[in-house]
Amino acid sequence: MKNLKTIAIAVLVAFGTTVATAQNKKIDAAKSTINWVGKKVTGEHSGTVNFQEGMLIFKGKKVVGGNFTVDMTSLTATDLTGEWKQKLDGHLKADDFFGTDKFKTATLKFTTIADKGNGLYTVTADLTIKGITKPVTFDLTVKGNTATTAFKVDRTKYDIKYGSKSFFDVGDKAIYDDFDLAISLQF
């Protein structure tokens, strides 16, 4: 048996075969950003939400996986100040939006990745908000120790229906179902 192991190692070395192992690169949660924009008939609001933790998984120089946890209690508007900011922040954290008392985190886990070359990938991932998991697809650009993406999320798929004209007759008070995310990762 010892000779068989020696022969196998010799064959691997002789042919220069190496086994690529995955490398987890944790994000720097303090330097990574998530910016959001929610639009309504009469305008829009923008803000941020913070990462709790996350990582990209590489095999060599190629992205092969990733998973992230977002601290939903950090959700805040950046386009308002004072009383109006407090009201919007409170409403976004309430049960008719993200229900952050019960659902303190949201998660994103890569399920499939297509390498498009030059550090560009098309990713399909499971996004979980309010305990509901749905797939999302987006392009991810990786350069050095950074990665960026932008994509839309249909909030109604996660039982966030407040002000949606898809469910209610709200006239000019309608809030569009999609919100935009712009994400920048530092690792």
Score class of each variant (00 low, 15 high):
K173V: 05
D139Y: 04
F167I: 05
L108F: 15
A30H: 11
I129L: 15
G43E: 01
D159E: 07
G16V: 01
G60P: 04
K2P: 11
W36K: 01
K102W: 00
D126I: 06
F97E: 04
L56F: 05
L12P: 11
D95S: 10
K161T: 05
S32P: 02
V11L: 15
F110W: 04
D79I: 09
G47H: 03
K2Y: 14
G131A: 00
A22I: 10
A114L: 10
T105E: 01
K25P: 02
G16L: 02
I9W: 15
V13E: 14
T6R: 12
Y121D: 03
L108K: 03
E53K: 14
S166C: 07
T105R: 04
K31C: 05
T156K: 06
V49E: 00
G171K: 12
F98W: 11
G38C: 09
M72L: 06
G82Y: 01
K116Q: 13
I160T: 03
V49L: 05
G82H: 03
T69I: 09
T17E: 13
V11R: 15
W36G: 02
T48S: 03
L120M: 15
A174C: 04
L127G: 02
A174I: 13
V170K: 01
D71T: 10
Q186M: 08
T48H: 07
N24M: 11
Q186H: 05
K2A: 12
T81L: 11
T100V: 11
I7Y: 01
L108D: 01
A150E: 12
V64Y: 15
A114F: 13
K5C: 05
F168W: 05
T133F: 13
A150G: 15
F98S: 06
A20M: 15
L92R: 00
K25E: 05
N145P: 02
L4P: 04
Q23L: 07
T76K: 12
G66I: 02
V136T: 06
G65P: 08
A77V: 12
D101F: 00
F168Q: 11
K116T: 13
Q52S: 13
F68T: 11
Y121I: 09
N24W: 08
K93W: 03
L127F: 02
G117M: 09
I27W: 00
G43Q: 00
K130Q: 06
V11I: 08
A14W: 12
H45M: 03
S46Y: 04
G171Y: 02
A182H: 10
I7R: 08
G171E: 11
A77I: 12
